[in-house]
Simulated scan of single mutants.
Amino acid sequence: MGQKVRPTGFRVGVVEDWRSRWYASKKDFGALLVEDQKVRKFIQTKYKFAGIPKVEIERTRDQVVVHLFTARPGIIIGRKGQEVDRLKAELEDLTGRRMELKIIEVDNALQSAALVAEDIAQQLSKRGSFRRTIKRALDQVMETGVHGIKIELSGRLGGAEMSRREKASRGSIPLSTLQRHVDYGFREAHTTFGVIGVKVWIDLGDYSDEENRDGSNAKAGQAPQKPKRTHKR
């Protein structure tokens, strides 16, 4: 099962949290789901180079709270918060609802599968060698201390006449083990030869190990881990 299913979708509701957290009646559900997709697409298109791996959305009766995860918060916040105010106004115009933005900084971009896939896609768009790009990504990610990484490219690689699929991996990627935190990311590289799909899987270890690591520092009398910076608007 894990071989055929997106790893995050396979784990949602078991060990992973939902990306959209709200409740709606049967009548309104479809419209709100489409609205969530519009918000995500708008943010990803407008801030293509801000390093956004995911956007989480919460709804209350009065407002929509958007949790924006980014590796480069400065691009979204802008000078004196002007850019984030503009984004908030544009989202309110798009949805017709009152919005609240929470910008959360991603600590290590190389441990986020979506951001690694984005980096590979950008290199391929700039006509970089796909083999060199894959090798560089594998080396950089493994140096951060992850348990494993797998990369798969699909399309007219190197401008070949016929499209094909290339895979490369290091370490372990236990796709069917639900207690294993396997991050997954997909991006498209738009080249002169067509679109190349980039898929990345990263094994970050057990969920229980991550929880123990967060709590063990405080228990051992060490300084707790630096919390992620959250910017509210």
Rank of each mutant, 00 (worst) to 15 (best):
T191R: 05
P227N: 03
A168S: 11
L138H: 14
I52M: 11
Q82Y: 15
V34R: 10
S112G: 06
S208N: 13
L68C: 06
D62E: 12
E83P: 01
R187Y: 02
E118P: 08
K88V: 07
F29P: 08
E211Q: 06
E211C: 02
Y184M: 07
R233N: 12
V106N: 02
T133W: 02
S154H: 13
R187M: 06
Y23S: 12
I76Q: 03
K88R: 15
H147S: 12
R59E: 09
S163N: 12
D93M: 03
A113E: 06
R187C: 09
R180Q: 11
L33W: 08
G171L: 11
S176R: 14
R213H: 13
V55N: 04
V5K: 05
E152H: 02
S163G: 14
T191C: 06
M162W: 12
I151G: 02
S216R: 13
Q63D: 04
K150D: 05
D107M: 10
E100P: 00
A71I: 06
E210A: 03
P224V: 00
A50F: 01
I77W: 15
H231F: 10
S208T: 09
Y23I: 02
V195T: 14
K4A: 11
D206F: 10
L101G: 04
V106C: 04
G194F: 11
A223R: 12
S25P: 02
G158A: 00
S129P: 09
Y184N: 03
E90R: 11
V182P: 04
K88S: 15
A109H: 05
T191E: 07
H231M: 10
A168C: 01
L33S: 14
K199L: 10
R132V: 13
A109F: 02
D28C: 01
V55F: 11
A160K: 08
K46G: 01
L101S: 04
I196C: 12
A168F: 01
T70S: 07
I52G: 05
V146L: 14
L138E: 07
L101V: 06
E90H: 07
